[in-house]
């Protein structure tokens, strides 16, 4: 009798201590994730004089909207935001659409050299973009369709730098930023869809295309949302490709990258004041927050489908 009671008690103690331990860890790590955002938020309203006051640690003593005003003006914020949202969404849709087709092809069909091509997908993921960026830049600087365009032009190739075409071309052909990862995840998902789905569709007389569009894609909706979200965010924050392909574009990442330098040169030209590193940090942190907020908002709206797709692709593994 007592041993049974003891056992039940010890089980309960273990359960409670495990959940206490879990909450401590979860809370701690959540704190690390949220803390920089809180800091940035507080700095957004900090007046310049507070930076030099060591008694001000986090919460500003003098409330001001100057930072916000300077950054919004310097980044041309609302125009850039709109541009970035539209552009990134467009690229994300292209990448998702084409990566889905490729991932599906790898998952559901048997064809010669399949292993080889999949290894090549992995290779595109493995090779850092820095290795191939210089030739890619040259390719798009003097773009040519196998010598076809040059025949009509006085000079060699067409200059695509400064236009969205380098992004569009690499998205359509699935060699954009981390597209290999998308193909990998999508293949993983479709590999687990039961064969009966396809067979039933075949019996009903559906061809490959209609099986794909009518049966397979609607089932993968939450994964599509996830992949689009990833592609969108990575395009939104991308500075590497953007600084090569569209260095002067009105996009948030470009604006944020040059925010401090632009501000510095403008202030020096106007002889207002010198910009020190503390003030630069303040401005950069406000700029970063303004870039973060829209994607955070989108993420919170879409997060249910995001986590759902993790579960779904997990179950079918």
């Amino acid at each position: 009798m007592t041993t049974n009671k003891n056992k039940a008690l010890s089980k309960k103690v273990t359960k409670v201590s495990v959940s206490v331990f879990r909450y401590v860890i979860v809370f701690g790590i959540s704190f690390y994730i949220v803390y920089p955002l809180i800091l940035k938020f507080l700095y957004m309203f900090m007046a310049k004089q507070d930076i030099y006051d060591i008694t001000v640690v986090m919460v500003p003593r003098h409330f001001s909207l100057d930072n916000l005003k300077v950054v919004i003006e310097e980044m041309n914020y609302f125009t850039s935001l709109l541009n970035t949202l539209v552009f990134s969404f467009f690229i994300a849709l292209l990448q998702t659409f084409f990566c889905f087709a490729v991932g599906y092809g790898f998952a559901r069909f048997e064809f010669p050299l399949k292993k080889f091509w999949f290894a090549m997908v992995m290779l595109t993921l493995l090779i850092p973009p820095q290795v191939i960026i210089a030739p890619l830049y040259m390719k798009f600087r003097y773009f040519d369709l196998l010598g076809f365009l040059s025949a009509f032009l006085p000079h060699r190739g067409v200059n695509l730098i400064g236009t969205p075409f380098p992004f569009i071309l690499s998205s359509v052909t699935c060699v954009g930023l981390r597209n290999g990862l998308f193909i990998f995840i999508i293949r993983q998902f479709f590999r687990g869809v039961p064969k009966e789905f396809e067979e039933a569709a075949n019996i009903d007389g559906a061809g490959f295309a209609s099986t794909y569009f009518r049966i397979m894609l609607p089932n993968a909706r939450s994964l599509a949302v996830t992949v689009t979200l990833f592609a969108f965010v990575w395009q939104y924050t991308d500075i590497f490709y953007t600084s090569w392909y569209m260095p002067n574009a009105n996009l948030l990442s470009v604006k944020l990258n040059s925010l401090a330098i632009n501000l510095q040169s403008r202030m020096m030209a106007a002889n207002v004041a010198t910009v020190d590193s503390a003030y630069t940090n303040l401005i950069n942190s406000t700029g970063s927050l303004l870039v973060i907020l829209p994607i955070l908002l989108i993420y919170f709206v879409l997060q249910r489908q995001f986590t759902e797709s993790i579960e779904r692709s997990g179950i079918v593994g």
Binding site: A101, G105, R108, C174, Y212
Partner: peptide, 15 residues
């Protein structure tokens, strides 16, 4: 097999 190649053809071109 042919259908499979059609599906992965965007990647082959890009690659």
């Amino acid at each position: 097999a042919a259908a499979g190649y059609v599906f992965i053809s965007p990647f082959i071109a890009g690659f």
